[in-house]
């Protein structure tokens, strides 16, 4: 490609695609930022209630999920390294591992939520209506924030599945890997949000 980059037929600018992805990540950060703002205000107003309510959550499951996500974040970063080093087979395996980790995270989440639902603790339930205000707010935020986060996990998985097939078809290769790079960036974003979500939801004293 020439330095001037004036192309009629095929215009390709990986830097632009990456900048675009980063800007999108900014919007996602602020989307969750709005929720963290709400969280911080209600936690400040009801510190004791938030502590009591957080005891309902199992720290063990939270830790497992944290490690699962951190690990998946590393594997997808390694997948990018692999593709840059032109090791297609390893890249495919690493993406597959990442997807497996994402699945484990979601299954864990499913049991965690299911456990609450069994006890009648879900938005709009009769039990929720009886709770104290602080407890109610905590669980409202818990379901909304982790729910939205899980939704992002699913979106990230879809992106990575597409990336997987693109690597397989060689349309993502050691020379043009920006799709995988952007998919990986999105996946790290999901991890990044969880890094803050975990201590704020599970570890309240």
């Amino acid at each position: 490609m020439s330095e001037k980059g004036i192309h009629i037929e095929e215009h390709r600018d990986d830097e632009a695609s990456k900048l675009g992805m980063w800007l999108f990540i900014f919007t996602e950060l602020l989307l969750f930022g709005g929720l963290f703002l709400v969280y911080s205000i209600y936690r400040w107003q009801y510190p004791v209630n938030f502590h009591e309510a957080s005891l309902e959550l199992s720290v063990t499951i939270g830790v497992i999920n944290t490690i699962v996500l951190l690990f998946s974040s590393m594997t997808i970063a390694m997948a990018l390294t692999a593709i840059q080093k032109n090791n297609k087979k390893l890249a495919l395996r690493l993406i597959a591992v990442t997807l497996l980790m994402a699945l484990i995270f979601l299954i864990n989440k499913y049991f965690e939520w299911g456990h609450k639902f069994e006890h009648g603790l879900y938005p709009g339930s009769d039990l929720m209506a009886l709770l104290e205000r602080g407890h109610l707010l905590y669980f409202s935020l818990y379901f909304f924030m982790t729910g939205l986060h899980a939704l992002h996990i699913i979106v990230g998985m879809i992106l990575l599945i597409i990336a997987y097939f693109k690597v397989k078809k060689d349309s993502v290769n050691s020379d043009r890997f920006v799709f995988l790079e952007n998919g990986a960036l999105y996946w790290h974003l999901v991890d990044l949000i969880w890094i803050f979500l975990f201590p704020l939801m599970y570890l309240i004293t």
Binding site: E28, G33, G34, Y42, Q45, G124, M128, L141
Partner: peptide
């Protein structure tokens, strides 16, 4: 994005009774 999340919270509050803003449900 900030208004996006706010409107999502509003919708969730109406659909599932998640109480963010209605004082009856604990919100502000």
């Amino acid at each position: 994005p900030i208004v996006g999340i706010t409107l999502l919270m509003l919708i969730a509050e109406r659909l599932f009774g998640i109480g963010f803003f209605d004082p009856k449900l604990g919100g502000d």
